[in-house]
Structure formats: C-alpha cells, structure tokens
Design a protein around this nucleic acid. Structure first.
Lengths: 338, 338
DNA sequence: ATTATTATTGGAACCGGTTCCATTTTATGT
DNA sequence: ACATAAAATGGAACCGGTTCCAATAATAAT
C-alpha cells in the first residue's frame, strides 16, 4: 500500500532517487541507498505492477495459446516454464481462445490482437492449429511470438519442435529390427502436424524395409484413451493377424494394451506394442511400455526463454536440438520365426 | 495503441464521455453513444488493463496457490476455471511459491503478502499445506481467499471440499460387501489432509465391520505411480495373504495392478483392487478400475466463483455439496467363501 | 583558489484510464 | 415565455510508477 512518495518522504529524499534505487540504474550515493532501503523495508514497500506497466507498456505477462492441443499441456511443463518466468517476475496466463479458428475465421486472429495489444507481451503458440500463413502474418505485426511443437521455415529461430518424423521412423524400425513384419497402427491425431509426422515417419520405416501394411490394420486415433481402446478392439476384429502395434502416443498404447489383454491375448507374447512420449506411467504398466522419449520440458523451456529474450531484450541460453530416445522396456518382444 | 483521448478527439467529445460509454455508467445521449462507439471501432480501441488497474486498484487477476499438491492440478480443471474467469476478463496465474512452508517458515506467508498486495486480487488456496491458524490469520488481513480441498470451520463459506472420510469409508465398505476380509492398503500421501481422511474413513469402515488389518498390510504411499508399484510389490512380499487392496488414488491403483500382474497374479481373480478419483483412464485399464468418483471440476468452479464474488462484488451461484459416487467396474470381484 | 568535470539529487511531466464536479444543454412545469 | 429541475458533457485531478532535465554537490584539474 505504500507508494514511492511515501518512501521518499520517510527517507527524506526525492522520488527520483527512490526510483533510481528501485531500478538499480543511475548513480546513488551509498548513504542515500541505505536510507532508502531502510524506508522501503519499514513501509514494506512493493512497487505497483500496474503503475509500472502503465509507463513501461509492458504487462510483464506472457500467454500460452493453442486451441486444440493445449488441453493436454502437462502441468509439470507449465511449472517449469513458470520457474523460468518467476525470476523476472513475469506472469504466465492462458491465452486460449476456445474459439476454433476454422469455425470462426479470424476469431483467433482477433483474440491475438487483443492479447498482444493489452493483455501480454508475448505469446507461445502451442501446436499447429493456425495455418502457417496466418502465423507469419501475425509474426509480421507482432514479432513477440514463439512456436512450440510447430515448425515454419521462415521463422525457424522462433520454432521449437522435435523431429516427429524421425521418431516415428525409429519406432517403425525398432519393430522391424525385432523381427516383426505384420504390423498394425493406431495413429495419433492426424489433424495435428505432429500426429501426421510421426505416422508418416513410421510408414517410411516400413517402406524402407519393404514391409507393407494393409489398410485394415491402420486405425485413425486421436491420442485419447478411448480411441486407443476402441482402436485395438477394432484391429483385433479384422481378419488380418498382426504381431506388433505402433501407437501414436502412450495414452492410446496403454489403453490398447488393456483392450488386448481384456480380449484374452498377451502383450508382448501375442502382440508387441510400442508407444510414444514416455509418460510417467509408462514404466509402471504391465508390461512396462517400450516407447520413445520426447524431452518436452526442455523444449518448452527453450521456447519460453526465446520469448523472454524477444520481449525483454534478454540473452538467455536457448537450445534448438532435442534428440529423441528409444526407451526399450518389455512391451516389445523379439519375434523368432517359427 | 489508441487511447481514450484519441477516441474522444475523433468522436468530437470529451474524455469523460468516452469513459462513460466504456463503463456503461452515467448518462450519455444516444447520438453521442453512436459517435463514440464508431470512433472506438475505427481506432480499434481497447482500454489499457494497466491504466485501469492503476486507478481501480484491482489487478483483474486471481492466483492459485498450493505448494505440494498443485503439481497434480488437472489441466481440464484449470481450463474450466478460466472459462469462468474469462467472462469478466480476469486472468488466472499460478501463485505457487515453490518454497515449502515447513522448510522456510513464514516464506509462504510473505509470498502471500506480495501477491495480495500487488499481484492479484484474490487467491484460491489449494490443499492443506498451510496450517489452519496461518490461513485464518491471512484471511483476517486479506479476506479474498477461497480454499479448495481444505476445510476450516471458522470460514466454512469459503471452503470447498469433499467428504474424503466418507469416500474412504465407502471404499472399505464396498470391499467388505464383496466378501473380503483380508484387505491391504496403499495409502495416499498422509502428509496431506485429504490423504489422511480417505485413509481414516477406510479404516473406520473396516473397524465398524470388525475386520482388522495387520500393520504389515498397510503401505504408506504418496499418490505416485512409483509408490503404487513399489507398495504392491512390498505387500506381496509380506507373509500375509490378502484378497483385496485399497489404494489412495487411481494412479497408485493402476501401478499396483501392474505390479501384481507382473508378479504373475491376476486382478481381480487373485486380488481385487479399488482406486480413488476416477481418472479418465480408469475405464480403459485391464481390468477396468473400480473406483470412487470425485466431481472435482465442479468443486473448483465453485471455489472460483466464490472468489469472484468476494473480489468483484458479484453474486454468482455457488454450490457447496459435492456428492461422491462409487463406480463399479471389474477390478473388484465378489469373493465366495470356499 | 578557481574552474572544469563528474556524481548526485529533486521533481515536473507523463503513461491511460476513472472520478467528480462545474458547466452547458435539454426537458418539464406553470 | 420564463423558471427550474434533469440530463448530458468536458476536463482537471488523480492513481503510482518512470523518464528526463535542470540544479546542486563533490571531485579533479589547472
């Protein structure tokens, strides 16, 4: 509740001096420094965010935006992002328009305008809901954006993403290396870029090894438990036997395993299953899940830092390379030819 | 970027008039209203949050605070809370001090002061990390708080919680109703109130039915997958056979089932398992998980609304009663005495 | 000792809203 | 038509910081 003028009066100095102490910029003699600090202490003074924002035209707030996929944002990831922000007293808010951009063309664009104008200093755009062209347009007017899990060549230095294609390839190759050639697939959400990429990579691995996969053994999922379960059930019903199953993420892999097990089959003895993400629970399932690990947190942190650099002229370290890693556990088994 | 003065100039009126149009309070003739609205439209005017906050002394932001348990905050819950807030253009921020209050006494209290002074208008305190006495003290100085998953009698109208005791009781009773009398338990995190309550309720049910449970069959967990897995392994190693297992939450139940299965036993044929929470995945496990459903989202929304009422003199509807519900699936089986 | 530099300091002006009151315009009553 | 009440309006003052510059004090140079 104490203002800078209260502090100035108590310390017997001018408000300019207090301001200089606050910012640490500008010369202040050591005696005055002491007096002012004491006064601030005595009055339990905290500078008003609002007043600061008013003059600096910075909200000290950044937003996360992403209509579709942000539902799955991991709380741990958010916490780590916040830890980065807290150092600079920046707030993190959710800038999701619940408006779907395809349903209301320009709606998302408008919500962006408002946000960037008044709501926050920069935005992390999560996922690939917005067409690249629109993002480029936005970036042109408002350079303070960063892309997470999306890649646009023209602004590559603001993009943080994995090579999902390669990760998908690794999964496919792994199943083949283990001797499988009758392989089924429950895809991720194909409306998202990354869902598509991991699927294409997987397909490419099979192709490179001259393994082909009948259409009936491809089930289009959407990353949910439900689709994983239903997908496995549906695949099992086809008249095409398979010994291995690639799932677009761990969630669908887990529920697919449940479905397979509930049908009286065994993983991995009857069917091997490979997931994608390495969720926490992946090591505590039955059987423990073979999957591909994505260092998502590190990526999110770099996206955050890049945005901080953009918004507040900082020079935090950033990384752009996020290697994926195959985690072999017990849900994929070597197939010996009888 | 346009200010209220720009609008006033363009519309040919005074700034007071524009302000009146903005707030909707105070008399404005219909012609001026039209002119002003047109000017705002033309200039794509959005009032500055910072300027508003400066004079209103409201940050239009509320915080969520909770050091320990907030790690598990469900993203869906957060989204629903935000939907409530968005209507009033209120931001939601995380006010977590990562400081543990027991490790740094008063640290949490201080972070509170700062937050309430300058950072946000009110705070939802999640869980029971802070001692009741301290919360009461805080509430005395800063009435704009709301408790989620915590109960303090003196400020009951600001508390939103379940009867975890009763829910625990229901779980215990259910196992007994199904004919079990050799029952093991992997507790939730006993350092949290709700972890304790569900455990005590469970114990009470057994006691009321004259079932007693040897100490060896109680494993102290902490809600994590890891402890669920380790706990089940540890219980299995004791020399005390049991036919049913109560777990403090679904996560530990799931990993306990995995551990049991990996040891070559079957759920529910050898051991019945009951969980707690009804997570999304609970219906897609093998076997599908019997559990108790907690309408957490509804509770969080009421806590949010109550806080809105407090902070901004609103009168949104609130509910205080959140009935729990036993969800019977297949992980608990009726035991027939041989 | 005197002047030129440099360090320190105080405070007016400003950021963009809201509040409030004096003033002008319009409507109502007789 | 005139007095009076009510409606509409303009803008100064303010919220609590930052910025910037003129004024003053301290130090160095001649």
């Amino acid at each position: 509740m104490a203002t800078i003028r209260d502090v100035a009066k108590l310390a017997g100095v001018g408000i300019g001096t207090v301001s200089r102490v606050l910012s640490g910029k500008g010369a202040v003699s050591s005696k005055t420094l002491l007096k002012v600090n004491q006064a601030m202490e005595d009055l339990n003074f905290t500078p008003s965010r609002a007043a600061r924002s008013l003059v600096s035209k910075k909200m000290n707030t950044i937003g996360i935006w992403g209509t579709k996929t942000s539902g799955e944002i991991n709380r741990r990831t958010l916490r780590e992002m916040e830890a980065e922000l807290k150092v600079f007293e920046i707030h993190l808010i959710f800038a999701d328009g619940e408006l779907n951009s395809s349903k209301y063309p320009n709606a998302s664009r408008q919500s962006f305008d408002k946000l960037i104008n008044k709501g926050c200093d920069g935005i992390i755009i999560w996922g690939s809901d917005l067409p690249a062209l629109e993002i480029l347009q936005i970036e042109n007017e408002f350079p303070n954006i960063t892309l997470l899990n999306n890649k646009i060549d023209l602004i590559d230095d603001k993009c943080f993403y994995f090579d999902h294609y390669q990760a998908g390839y690794v999964c496919g190759q792994h199943l083949i290396d283990k001797g499988h050639s009758n392989i089924a697939c429950i895809t991720g959400w194909l409306e998202t870029d990354d869902g598509n990429q991991r699927y294409q990579g997987f397909l490419c691995a099979l192709n490179d090894n001259n393994v082909n996969i009948p259409e009936e053994l491809i089930f289009e999922g959407d990353y949910t438990y439900r689709k994983g379960y239903e997908g496995a059930l549906s695949l099992l019903k086809q008249d095409k036997p398979f010994t291995a199953l690639f799932c677009g993420n761990d969630q669908s892999a887990m529920s697919a395993i449940a479905a397979i097990t509930n049908k009286g089959l065994e993983v991995p003895n009857d069917i091997s299953v490979i997931g994608y993400d390495d969720m926490n629970i992946a090591r505590y399932t039955s059987p423990p899940l073979t999957t591909v690990r994505i260092p998502f947190n590190r990526m999110a942190i770099s996206a955050t830092r890049r945005l901080l650099n953009l918004c507040y002229n900082l020079e935090l370290n950033i990384e752009y390379d996020f290697p994926i890693q195959l985690i072999e556990r017990l849900s994929v088994k070597k197939l010996y030819v009888q």
